[in-house]
Amino acid sequence: MRAPRWPVWLLLLLALAAELLPLPVAMQPLRPAWTTMVVIYWALMWPGRFGVFSAFLVGLCVDVAHGSLLGQHALSLSLLAYLVVRLHLQLRVFPLWQLTLSVFALMFIEAFVLLWIDGATGRAEFGPGRWGPVVAAALLWPALMAAMDRVRERLERRDSSFA
C-alpha cells in the first residue's frame, strides 16, 4: 500500500498560506520563503514522487497568489527541483550544517532566477525584500526539516513501497 499524496500537497498549501499571512510592514522582508523550503524538502526526500512537474505546478500557484508574472515562480521552482533531484543523493548524506548551507545556496540561485526575470521585464529591485526571505529560510531550515521529518516518517511507516 502506498502512502497517500494529499499530505504533501496539504503541507504545500499551508506553506503558501504562510507566505500570504499578513505581517507588519517592518517584518515583511524577513518572511521566510516557505513554499520554496517545502519544495526543496519534498524533492530531496521523495524525488520519485515530487519532482520537476510538481514544482512547476506549485510555482504556478505561487505566481497567481503573489500576482507576479505567470510562469516566473514556475520556472524558478522547477529549476530548483531539478537541481535538488539531480543532487539528492549527495545532499542527503551531508551533515545538517552542510545541508543548510547547500539549501541556502540553492535558494540563492532560485532568487537570482527571479531577479533575472524581474530585470528582463523592467522591475529589477535590490531591496531587503529580495534577499531577506532567503536568509530567513536558511536560518529556519533545520527546524523545518525536523518537523517535516516527523510527518514523512509517519507516512513512510504506512507505505509498503519504502522497504
Partner: peptide, 8 residues
C-alpha cells in the same frame, strides 16, 4: 488581510 509579493 493578505500579503502579496513583498517587492510589489
Amino acid at each position: 488581510a493578505v500579503d502579496m509579493d513583498p517587492l510589489r
